[in-house]
C-alpha cells in the first residue's frame, strides 16, 4: 500500500463508535450489540490510505486527551495502592474533626457530616471501586473471553446456544439481578465482585466471539489450518493476539461500567458494609446534607465522574486506534 507522500498529519475525525459506552448498569449491553449493527468510522474518506505507523507516531496519534485519561487512572490507582503509606487522616475517624468543614490545608477537601476527612475517604473509597472494577472484569474476561474464543472458532450449535443466552443476559436489567443476589446472599465485597463479574461475562463473550469469527476466516488462520496446526495452537497463537487488543480496550470501558455498578449498589447501601468508604456511599451520605453543604456530595461525584470518563475515553480511543491499524493491514 503506497504511503501518501504528504507529511500532513492524518486528519482522523474523532469517531465515537456507535456502541458508545454507557455508564448505566445495563448498557454493558449497548456497546457490543449495538456495535454489530453500526460499527465503522462515520467518516470514510475517498480512497485514503491508512497505514500502520511507528510506535512514537502512535503515541502522538492517540492524542493528548488519551494520555490525560491514562494519567488520571494511573494517579487514582497509585493513590489507592499507597493509601496506607500516605499521611492521611483515618477515613473512619468519626468525630476526629469538626463536621462539614470547608476545604483547608489540614483537610484538603473539607470534612463530611460526621467530621471525617473527605480526601482520605475518597482515596480509600477508590480501593473498593478499583478492586470491584478490575477484579470483576478480570473474571468476566477470563470466562467470557475463553467462551467467546471457543464459540467463535468452532461455531456450531454450542455457539448458537451461547449466543442466544448472551443476548438475553445482555438486555436484562443488571441492577435487578444484582439486587436479587444481594437480597439472597447478603452484602459483601466478595458478593459484589462475583455478581458484577458474572454480569460482565455476556458482553465480553460477544466482543471476543465477534472478533474471533472475523479472524478465524483470515488467510493466515486458514493457512495455519491447512498446514495442519493444532486448533488449540491456532487459537492461542494466531487468533488470541489479534483479538486481545480490541477486547482489552473494550474491557477498559467495561471496568468503568463495573465501577458505576458498584457505585449504584453503594448508593443504595447494598455494596460493602459501612463504615468502609465507597464513592457511591459517600454520594448517598452527602445527599442528605445537600442544602447545607453541597461540596460533601460534589467531591466523590467528581472522583467517580472523572474516573469513569477517563476509562470510557481511553477505551474508546484505543478501540478506534486498533480499528484503524486493522484497516491498514
Amino acid at each position: 500500500m503506497p504511503e501518501p507522500p504528504s507529511s500532513r498529519p492524518p486528519s482522523r475525525p474523532d469517531v465515537v463508535p456507535a456502541g458508545i459506552p454507557s455508564t448505566s448498569l445495563g448498557v454493558m449491553a449497548g456497546a457490543p450489540a449495538g456495535g454489530e449493527v453500526l460499527e465503522g468510522p462515520a467518516d470514510v474518506q475517498l480512497g485514503e490510505a491508512k497505514t500502520a505507523r511507528a510506535p512514537s507516531a502512535a503515541i502522538r496519534r492517540l492524542g493528548f486527551a488519551f494520555w490525560i485519561s491514562v494519567g488520571w487512572v494511573a494517579l487514582v490507582i497509585l493513590l489507592a495502592v499507597l493509601a496506607n503509606l500516605l499521611p492521611l487522616d483515618d477515613p473512619n475517624g468519626i468525630g476526629s474533626s469538626l463536621p462539614k468543614q470547608s476545604p483547608s490545608l489540614q483537610h484538603l477537601l473539607g470534612t463530611d457530616s460526621l467530621g471525617r476527612d473527605i480526601f482520605s475517604r475518597i482515596i480509600f473509597g477508590a480501593r473498593v471501586s478499583l478492586i470491584v472494577g478490575f477484579t470483576s472484569i478480570f473474571i468476566g474476561m477470563v470466562v467470557g473471553g475463553t467462551l467467546g474464543l471457543i464459540a467463535g472458532f468452532y461455531r456450531g450449535p454450542l455457539d448458537a446456544i451461547f449466543d442466544g443466552a448472551s443476548t438475553v443476559a445482555l438486555a436484562f436489567p443488571a441492577l435487578v439481578f444484582l439486587l436479587a443476589i444481594v437480597a439472597a446472599v447478603g452484602q459483601s465485597l466478595f458478593t459484589v465482585v462475583v455478581s458484577i463479574g458474572i454480569l460482565s461475562i455476556a458482553p465480553l463473550f460477544r466482543i471476543v466471539r465477534a472478533n474471533t469469527i472475523v479472524y478465524a476466516q483470515r488467510e493466515f488462520v486458514l493457512a495455519a489450518r491447512a498446514l495442519g496446526a493444532r486448533r488449540i495452537r491456532i487459537m492461542a497463537r494466531e487468533i488470541l493476539p489479534n483479538v486481545l487488543p480490541t477486547a482489552l480496550s473494550f474491557a477498559l470501558v467495561a471496568v468503568a461500567i463495573a465501577i458505576v455498578a458498584e457505585g449504584a449498589l453503594a448508593f443504595l447501601g447494598l455494596s460493602v458494609r459501612p463504615p468502609t468508604p465507597t464513592w457511591g456511599g459517600m454520594i448517598s451520605e452527602g445527599r442528605t446534607s445537600l442544602e447545607q453543604d453541597a461540596l460533601i456530595c460534589l467531591w466523590p461525584s467528581l472522583a467517580l465522574f472523572f474516573t469513569v470518563l477517563a476509562l470510557n475515553f481511553a477505551g474508546d480511543r484505543l478501540r478506534s486506534f486498533f480499528e484503524i491499524r486493522e484497516g491498514g493491514l
Binding site: P4, Q45, L46, E48
Partner: peptide, 9 residues
C-alpha cells in the same frame, strides 16, 4: 475536481 486524502481527483 474532488479534494481527497490522496490528492486532487
Amino acid at each position: 475536481h474532488f479534494r481527497t486524502g490522496r490528492g486532487m481527483v
